[in-house]
Design a protein around this nucleic acid. Structure first.
Lengths: 141, 141
DNA sequence: AACAAATATCTTGTATACATGATATTAATA
DNA sequence: TATTAATATCATGTATACAAGATATTTGTT
């Protein structure tokens, strides 16, 4: 490998960086980061998930989840609530009205990014790229 | 987008994370991180580059370069030296003997990762993925 | 019941990455 | 030449990501 650009680690890292920048730009008007969007997305599908449930769903470790939930809570998009069943180890993340209200605009913004990237690559190349990334991203591949 | 996995931002982020983990595992025995490898790679091709030259070559901003060079210097893989031409704004990164000696084993490790991923995807799909990532990673796309 | 194992959350320390800005130095210009 | 603009590095604060571990709680086993 003469060129660092052909090193898969560098290559995919830089590509992910560019996409992350574009996602940040789309989400910035709402004060939400790309990872925070992923957590909100999980909660829109099922509200009241615990930290470990969110981490398992999104492949985010416990230390990172704590920080993300902290910031979403500080932004009043979610609240921490005790588990109904009484397991006192658990903190459940519950959407606030504001957190719920962001679903439509944030989904719209991220769909827009998907369409833009898809259009830039062409539908066929985009499909192939998506498929390849799915295979690489599978944990324990 | 019902599934967060189909969001390009989440998808490529997780794929990059998995690759980064595998790269870290390969490089860990040498005490070097994937990004540090990229900087060393640039210096193996041209020793004595300044921070801004390295940043421009590798698309790393100045604040990040400072930290990476700090740690490579602390590990005694490079040294900071003043610019020969006398520009006192510049710090040039110069490889130590140890830094130079890591070229063969680190390149071997990263080539191995490339071959593994390529084999997992199949040569054809791998080529297509590389091409797609090149297009996404291009700054200012 | 008592104890060990597992689970959930959080803490701390390190490494990118980015925004912003401070400082020093050099280059360009009026 | 005096001033301004540009450049290079570094500092600071925030946001992931991961390793390692501390604490509290629950579960499983004897």
């Amino acid at each position: 490998m003469d060129r660092i650009e052909d090193c898969i680690s560098f290559l995919i890292g830089k590509a992910a960086q560019q996409i992350a920048r574009r996602a940040r730009d789309k989400l910035a008007p709402f004060g939400v980061t790309p990872v925070q969007y992923a957590v909100l997305h999980a909660l829109w599908q099922q509200d009241g998930q615990s930290g470990s449930e969110l981490g398992a769903r999104l492949a985010i470790d416990s230390a990172t989840i704590t920080g993300i939930v902290d910031r979403l809570e500080a932004a009043k998009l979610i609240a921490r609530r005790p588990d109904q069943a009484g397991d006192r180890r658990i903190n459940r993340a519950v959407l606030t009205e504001h957190g719920r209200s962001l679903q439509a605009p944030l989904d719209r913004a991220m769909n827009e990014l998907n369409r833009e990237v898809s259009a830039e690559l062409g539908q066929n190349d985009a499909r192939l790229l998506w498929a390849g990334l799915h295979r690489l991203g599978r944990v324990g591949a």
